[in-house]
Simulated scan of single mutants.
Amino acid sequence: MAEAIGLGLLAAYGGGMPQDFLIARNPEEGTTLPFLLRIPLGPDGIVLKAKDTWPRTSKVYCHRAVGWPAQPDLVESVPVRSCVRRGAAIDLVLGRGRENRSQFVLTRIRGGREAIFWQTARTAKQARPAATLPTARAAGVVDLPILVDSHERYAWNFSHQQASTTTRGLPAGDYAVEWDGQVVAAVERKSLPDLVQTLTGGKMRYLLAALADLPRAAVVVEDKYSRVFALERVRPAVVADGLAECHARFPSVPILFCETRALAQEWTYRFLAASVQEAADEAGGTSRLADISPATPPSAAQVRAWAQEQGYAVSPRGRIAAEVMAAFERRHQ
């Protein structure tokens, strides 16, 4: 199994006391994985590159590193109570009161490429919220064109929703929609650590001011509000007060906690779709994205009549071809 996965892992330490779990800064320049982890398994340990120092709000993506540096820039060294390989996972228990139990899961992703995810019981549960996302498109929208800011890293692709994306520089926000060539709504996406850093670093006020210049805007956080009060590296009251001040100063830009990445993306899609419809109504016209209301679906006779007018060959009875239905839905674009 170890050879198949390719990490050369061992099921035990091979004698002696467990070593420390080490976290250091990654000396590579321009990397998106700024930390190195050394898991005390095997004679030389297992060295991984990681995106964060602990899976606090979501799973942390890791990738194998060439080796541990001779003079590491250590961030943390924590005694290990237990480190055991169980199948395709490594269970790690640290010798401290909090943030002490985690697991490294080895898997294969698209194309057979190896991937390693560092998770805790909390983040594993959060990745599977007790909610099923709807597959129905937003009311009145056939295919929502969403603009994605060119500086957005790990951008949403809205593959679950009926939307298409285009990347370009945005004046505010990470995701936006236009009406008549003007941005009419934007959404700024934040993870909880990013939100905390933006608040405590003094950048939040400028970010919200830029969003407030738009007709509609919001900030979505990929986490629960209750997680604010579980923060350890900053006083929770400082973050809570900062959020309250933002709401009071910029009431037109709400900050919503959407629990997970998937739910935040779903809310953003529907907010942007509704914003386009509202902009069209304000302009006194009909949205180019307008479609027949889901409450009054078209009849087969209506679709056939339209198709015949457009020169499509349709039978008087039976199922209408998918390409004809798709063309019918696109008729207002």
Rank of each mutant, 00 (worst) to 15 (best):
I23N: 11
Q182S: 10
V303H: 00
I292D: 14
G173S: 04
P72V: 08
P294N: 02
P55H: 05
T135G: 05
I5M: 14
P254Y: 11
A321W: 02
F35Y: 15
P27K: 12
E266T: 03
D91V: 12
L10D: 08
V66W: 06
A155N: 06
F271L: 04
A115P: 00
C62I: 10
V238W: 02
A176K: 05
S164E: 11
I116F: 07
A139S: 05
L263W: 00
L192N: 10
F104I: 08
A273N: 09
I23L: 13
E323P: 02
L74R: 10
R270S: 08
P298R: 03
A136N: 09
I146C: 05
R128Q: 14
G169H: 10
A248W: 01
K51H: 12
A283T: 04
T123S: 04
D73C: 11
P236T: 08
T268I: 04
D73K: 13
V234G: 01
E266V: 07
L208F: 08
A172V: 04
P27Q: 08
T286D: 02
S191P: 03
W68C: 11
L7A: 05
V75F: 02
F328S: 12
D194Y: 06
G15L: 08
R189H: 11
L272T: 10
V187E: 05
H247V: 12
W68G: 14
T53E: 13
T57H: 13
E259L: 10
G169M: 09
S150G: 08
G284L: 00
L74F: 14
Q161N: 15
Y61R: 12
E222K: 06
R122L: 11
R153M: 10
G16T: 06
A273H: 03
L92A: 07
E309W: 01
A163Q: 02
L94W: 05
D91E: 14
M1V: 15
E114Q: 15
A313N: 08
T57P: 00
K203W: 05
L231K: 03
A217V: 01
G87H: 10
P171N: 06
G15Y: 06
E178D: 01
A322H: 11
T166Y: 02
V234S: 01
E266M: 10
Y206H: 15
